[in-house]
Amino acid sequence: MQVQGRVVVVTGGGNGIGKALCERFHAEGAEKVIVADLDLVGAEAVAAAVEGEAFAVNVRDEDAIKAMVDDVVARYGHIDLFCSNAGIIAGDGDPWWATSAPNSTWQAMWEIHVMAHVYAARACLPGMLERGEGFFLNTVSAAGLLNQVGDAAYSTTKHAAIGFAEALAITHGDDGIKVAALCPQAVATQMIGSVEEGGTAGVDGILTPEQVADAVIEGLAAERFLILPHPQVADYRAAKAADYDRWLGGMRKLRRRFGNPNL
Results as ranks from 00 to 15, higher is better:
residue 142 A to E: 03
residue 141 S to K: 09
residue 131 R to E: 11
residue 127 G to M: 10
residue 144 G to Y: 01
residue 122 R to H: 15
residue 144 G to L: 03
residue 143 A to Q: 01
residue 140 V to C: 09
residue 140 V to G: 03
residue 138 N to M: 05
residue 140 V to F: 00
residue 128 M to W: 13
residue 120 A to W: 00
residue 145 L to S: 11
residue 126 P to S: 05
residue 141 S to V: 09
residue 119 Y to A: 11
residue 125 L to Y: 12
residue 126 P to R: 06
residue 132 G to S: 09
residue 146 L to A: 03
residue 116 A to R: 05
residue 124 C to W: 15
residue 118 V to I: 15
residue 145 L to H: 09
residue 130 E to A: 14
residue 123 A to M: 04
residue 140 V to L: 04
residue 119 Y to M: 13
residue 124 C to Q: 13
residue 128 M to F: 11
residue 118 V to C: 08
residue 131 R to D: 10
residue 146 L to I: 14
residue 143 A to D: 00
residue 121 A to H: 01
residue 126 P to C: 07
residue 147 N to A: 14
residue 138 N to R: 05
residue 144 G to E: 02
residue 118 V to K: 09
residue 142 A to F: 12
residue 127 G to F: 06
residue 146 L to W: 00
residue 122 R to F: 03
residue 140 V to H: 00
residue 121 A to I: 14
residue 118 V to T: 12
residue 132 G to Q: 04
residue 147 N to Y: 13
residue 129 L to F: 00
residue 115 M to C: 02
residue 120 A to Q: 07
residue 146 L to V: 10
residue 115 M to G: 00
residue 124 C to N: 12
residue 134 G to F: 02
residue 115 M to Q: 15
residue 131 R to P: 12
residue 129 L to W: 00
residue 141 S to D: 01
residue 116 A to L: 11
residue 142 A to T: 13
residue 138 N to W: 01
residue 128 M to N: 06
residue 120 A to C: 03
residue 135 F to Q: 10
residue 130 E to R: 03
residue 123 A to H: 03
residue 124 C to K: 08
residue 128 M to P: 12
residue 116 A to M: 08
residue 117 H to E: 10
residue 116 A to S: 15
residue 139 T to K: 10
residue 131 R to H: 08
residue 130 E to L: 08
residue 133 E to T: 13
residue 128 M to S: 07
residue 123 A to D: 03
residue 146 L to D: 04
residue 126 P to I: 07
residue 119 Y to E: 09
residue 134 G to Q: 04
residue 122 R to G: 04
residue 143 A to F: 12
residue 142 A to G: 15
residue 131 R to T: 09
residue 132 G to D: 07
residue 117 H to P: 15
residue 141 S to G: 05
residue 134 G to L: 01
residue 137 L to D: 08
residue 137 L to Y: 06
residue 115 M to E: 08
residue 133 E to I: 01
residue 116 A to N: 15
residue 134 G to K: 02
residue 137 L to T: 06
residue 136 F to V: 00
residue 119 Y to K: 12
residue 121 A to V: 05
residue 147 N to T: 15
residue 127 G to E: 08
residue 132 G to T: 10
residue 135 F to T: 11
residue 145 L to A: 05
residue 142 A to K: 09
residue 134 G to H: 04
residue 116 A to Y: 08
residue 139 T to G: 07
residue 116 A to Q: 15
residue 115 M to K: 10
residue 131 R to I: 02
residue 137 L to H: 03
residue 137 L to E: 09
residue 119 Y to R: 09
residue 145 L to T: 13
residue 142 A to V: 15
residue 123 A to F: 02
residue 127 G to V: 06
residue 117 H to S: 13
residue 122 R to W: 11
residue 117 H to R: 06
residue 141 S to C: 13
residue 126 P to Q: 01
residue 137 L to M: 03
residue 116 A to P: 14
residue 141 S to Y: 09
residue 143 A to K: 07
residue 123 A to T: 06
residue 122 R to E: 15
